[in-house]
Nucleic acid binder design. Sequence first.
DNA 1: AAAAAAT
Length: 733
Amino acid sequence: MPKSNKSGGFKAAKNYEPRTPGKGGPKAGSRSPSHRGFKPADESAPRKQRWNADERSARGAAPSSRGERPSYGDRPERPAYGDRPERGGYNRGERSERPAYGDRPERGGYNRGERSERPAYGDRPERGGYSRPSRENGFNKSGTGTGRSERPSYGRDERPAYNRDERPSYDRDERRVPQRTDRQKWNDARNEERRAEAAKAREDAPKRTWEERPKRSFDDRPKRSFDRDDRPARTERPAYNDRPARTERPAYNDRPARSFDDRPKRSFDRDDRPARTERPAYNDRPARSFDRDSRPARADRSDRGSDFYPNRDNKPAFNQVDDVVLERLEAQATLAGDVDGVTFADLGIGGNITRVLAELGAESPFPIQAATIPMVLEGRDVLGRGRTGSGKTIAFGAPLVERLMENGGGANRKPGRKPRALILAPTRELALQIDRTVQPIARAVGLFTTQIYGGVPQARQVGALQRGVDIIIGTPGRIEDLIEQRRLDLSDVTITVLDEADHMCDLGFLEPVQRILRHTKDGGQKLLFSATLDKGVATLVEEFLVNPSVHEVAGEDQASSTIDHRVLVVESRDKSEIIRQLADREGKTLIFSRTRAYAEMLAEQLEDAGFPATSLHGDLNQSRRTRNLQQLTSGRVSVLVATDVAARGIHVDDIDLVIQADAPDEYKTYLHRAGRTGRAGKKGTVVTLIPRARRRRMDELLERAEIQAEMVDAFPGDALLGELAADTPVAPR
DNA sequence: AAAAAAT
């Protein structure tokens, strides 16, 4: 059963049209409100009758037809899944879109008015099947009265009975979903009982653990108790504060034992791990000192081959690691001066594309573009490193399109043709942004692009694929999803680009990326770009690249950057106020936080303080993410508080101040966050707030990043704060 | 911790 997809579609439809309440019937509407979680408008959609014999047959037909309907692919704009509150919107949206339903003789005979609503039900084969059996059981029992008696066992005597009596009438009358409600209520009741039981179990469990503990970690306990008291830091972690259910901690209880065993090893590692300072709550724990010892991880981590802790042992890792990689790959450096007078045409880019580039504001190539475009056009695999804001998108986008066109691309417009190029990015926003640059270039020569990323209904994306596209731009998850659904075939992809390539090789990204690359054509060209390209990409290079050409731009060190870096050592309690004072300015300000919750909280605080601020993080649905970012771009808000979702690649004109409310863990993260300002040679300021305990670690990070930054103590009201806020005038445009 | 699929 294709249900899953369909169900998604329904939801979307719901959102679409909030629909008028009470359509199904007045009675239903009035009752529905009484039902938990049901909106009056929604009730009309679900009906008992539907799952009657007639409906069943209809259902069976409906699903299949749906799956085949191309029309679905055309659905214009479904709001993100997250946005869909409830089913109310369902029926409506589907109605308008379902022309096919009209064709169904059965349904037509059924109930015209109801038709619109049925489809929703019909689509849910599972539900129908489900509800039926259960209902029957329930009905029989209820009819006999046994059902009620049973309910009590569930913990709820009243509701089930009540609902049952009403249901029949509802069903007959109209499409009401009372049945569902009842079921759900039943389920809820059961679940609540289960939860209660689980809670009890947990409470009991912890006790047990406590009893047991003394023996194991006897030594550790005293310390822990202190830790808890000391945790004032928690204020920064709103989420944690809310946790009343410490009962869940059993896990913590167990830890002591573990760390205890491991300690000997960790003690050696300690020096390197100052990092813990970032975890305010944890820092305060005296016990942690022990924990540090126990961390054997370092050695292990470095072994992973990840770039995560590249330099620690070596120190100025950035260059060293890169140099190693680059040496092996025969890196070539291009001097900015070499590019003077060179045009895109000189590099081999055709007239149409050159014109579009000019329209995009790229009159003449930047150094990284001049360095890599010829190599890409030669068909070589390329590793390109250019610092943030140096024009990497065009560096791979323009030659990519040029090559597709050379290979007869423009002439091939057969519907359903397979894509021939793939661009992967780590975030949806970045994928969207890349498309905004690449699409016009592609269109200039008659090629089509489409975005494939999650958080939005897949129908439109699938529709585009069916019509035929040449260039896919997207994020790993949805691309894999569509491949598995056999709606996306990458076997003709001859050029693959990994933007932010080093990040795409981080844990969590690497494997999906590898799987996707394996779906592309053997021997296809691979282009890896990032501002912090390092040995972390070695795994991919070894598997997928052949004799790659490595390029970077000489003289692109941080010293020559247009970014002014500052580090403020602040008291934890002063942080909010200091951020507020820094953000008290006209220009666009981007604030980074480590967690989504803190980002949300900061944004709210700033809004409450009267600043036009919004947030960007993974807890928002995609439409919100897109909208909130757009609000900063358009200037509707001047402050955006984001997680690292905005750290890489995102380009917003004229961000002249970046505030790191939480310092990053990685020097590369620092570089990317900082790179949201000072783009294309403009001036920018980066202010990083750290607690006193983090100074040393921050020094090390800055050293790895090769950044010179002044580190000073700061308190609310300091003149410095006002200077930093005002210091960076918005660049005239 | 965050990001990346969907439900």
